[in-house]
Design a protein around this nucleic acid. Sequence first.
DNA 1: TATGAATGAGCTTTCATTCAT
DNA 2: TATGAATGAAAGCTCATTCAT
Lengths: 215, 215, 215, 215
Amino acid sequence: MAAQAPAADGQKQPITPRSARGVRTRNALIAAAREVFERDGYLDARITDISKAAHVASGSFYTYFNSKEEIFRALVEQVQEEMLHPHLRERTGITDPRKLIDASNREYLRAYRKNARLMALFEQVAQVDEQFMALRIERGNAFARRNAKLIRTLQENGQADTSLDPLVTAHALSVMVSRMAYMVFVLGQRIPYERLVTTLNTIWENGLQLRDAQD
Amino acid sequence: MAAQAPAADGQKQPITPRSARGVRTRNALIAAAREVFERDGYLDARITDISKAAHVASGSFYTYFNSKEEIFRALVEQVQEEMLHPHLRERTGITDPRKLIDASNREYLRAYRKNARLMALFEQVAQVDEQFMALRIERGNAFARRNAKLIRTLQENGQADTSLDPLVTAHALSVMVSRMAYMVFVLGQRIPYERLVTTLNTIWENGLQLRDAQD
Amino acid sequence: MAAQAPAADGQKQPITPRSARGVRTRNALIAAAREVFERDGYLDARITDISKAAHVASGSFYTYFNSKEEIFRALVEQVQEEMLHPHLRERTGITDPRKLIDASNREYLRAYRKNARLMALFEQVAQVDEQFMALRIERGNAFARRNAKLIRTLQENGQADTSLDPLVTAHALSVMVSRMAYMVFVLGQRIPYERLVTTLNTIWENGLQLRDAQD
Amino acid sequence: MAAQAPAADGQKQPITPRSARGVRTRNALIAAAREVFERDGYLDARITDISKAAHVASGSFYTYFNSKEEIFRALVEQVQEEMLHPHLRERTGITDPRKLIDASNREYLRAYRKNARLMALFEQVAQVDEQFMALRIERGNAFARRNAKLIRTLQENGQADTSLDPLVTAHALSVMVSRMAYMVFVLGQRIPYERLVTTLNTIWENGLQLRDAQD
DNA sequence: TATGAATGAGCTTTCATTCAT
DNA sequence: TATGAATGAAAGCTCATTCAT
């Protein structure tokens, strides 16, 4: 009958801010975290520095977060809201596979380039934090499943190589794109943007042996 | 604290063992490092633990290495000797592109699977140590350049899609394979081995639009 | 170990206390440092012991200082404020050279005796820390220059041996006094105080061949 | 009846070399110690470095010495033999006080300058090693007693100021000379050599109010 | 809520000294 | 005697986390 259980499960007290000031402080901390993480890397970022960057006393950090992991997760959530779009097909109505592939790749690469420092950070954290790694894996799987469905449809329509395993293929083509994005935008491999897009598009299309519908 | 400069004759002391016993100890340390790194991860590995695993006193570590980085590098060098093979084509005499692709992918995936924990470790360290990352990039570039040359030849012989940029394509197909290896053997994505090989082979072949020589 | 450079914004963290409590702690550390330095000597003093003597945790030391050198320098500064007096002549109005010499020597020896342990410490640190040695040299030079001026005036008035180089003489007579102070008050050479003063006075006077103004 | 007691008093076994090789090694170590001490300072000198400089295995050090102190003492002894001269008066037959003072000061300053690095070292070690400090004190006292005797004689002959305490005066004039030598030859105070000698001579003579014998 | 100082576990690193060969 | 590696006690220093105000 208790409307609100008293949160307490042995942990401390990370608050959900009640006052406007609290909200501001919490947001300042998240913004500062992003700044410090991107500048120093996740591992070298000290909680102290985050507080300092947020112009907040070092102890105040613990009013809202229990650890570096926790604020990182908060940061990820916030960023995700910004980066999350409804699915391309639904959004744009594109049905031509070639156009869909092109649009997807372009959208992905553009977003990656724009948030390159953040993506580098995610890559780093995945190597360090198992939970975050698990999150990425799950996200990758979901994405691959979606693409697998598309491939399967194309195969059924006689538009794609039926010898390919849809799910494995979806994984392979996805990691190819994301890894190239990493190589170019994070590691700085010098490949002109348009050539990158075109090449990836072509490998997708060739790889699937995409052809126009038989109808 | 020191009135005078610290004797400075370059670096510290790490020696190359002169006695048989020294060689044994150094090797024991490297073996222990591998064990500890694979078990605890690079970041959580403590020098103390490496010494302990090698059954030597903590200070003995510093007889041969100055830091975790340094012993890691020594480990990499040692492993590389084991893993380094002459190039496949030269070694096997295979010239048929399909067979070459198949043989390459099989060899790579087999080696990756066999050393999966080590590869996971490398992935982690690359995120943490700039020098090591640079090393991998350079190695990746060299590998891609070799493959690009092969692709260019195929294009010239009319055996491959000439609209593809050879170097970018080489990079893309390489990262696809290596990243899938990571996904399967390190992250544990459940994909049957043979299906993995076949799918990757097919994407390579399709991707390049490989066809038999014209003549 | 760090992939990125360590945040680098110059030095480390040593802060100037903002709160009253902070001031107290910092002072407690300096007082403890003096205690430990005088007891164990500069070299054998461990930072741990200073913290212990100040009744703070070992890490608290680093809130205010980065090293033993640094706290030593803070100690010196604090002591200097206590020991610094305006110049004797200005202060007392004494003009008779004999009286001035007597007053100077007495004042110096009294202060030295009072702070003997500290002076011993300074002597030790000068042998160990180049910066501190440099400081003392400069101070000695300034003192000698002042005395040299006095000597030059006396020579011009026909009250002192004109064959003497004023600056070298000033140095020589100064080190004589300070070194005798060290010998007696630090090393424990048993010379009655009054005899010490009288002898040094006489050597000064004789040494300069001091005589009454000719007028 | 035991002709040779077995040395053992709980300490280890520092040997007096029996073989020619042993003598050579021991001497090489002492020479190397001097080199390293002068280069790095006493405190920063590591036993390891001394062995290295002597081209001897690190463990061999302990065949001849138990510690840094011990080899330092051996070094001092060896150096002393080189630097020890019979007393000036006996040696030269000089009796004129002025000439004697001049000869003494010149000899002292020349030797100091020649061995400046070593003298700097002694100064440093005295601040660190009580036994060595005691040694220097005793040596200084002996020297002062000798000079005091000379002063007393001069006073009795009416050639020196009888108001001076001979022993304190001897100390004071001695430390003046030795400290000026330190200042010039170790600390690098720029005073021309001849001016230094002359000034010190004059202060001695004036200080004692030296005059020709009355007879 | 905010502040900023205090805490102390945890790891690194050095080197004098020992010891098996 | 000589060798050169092994040992391990001692400090140093960092920073996440706590806490009194």
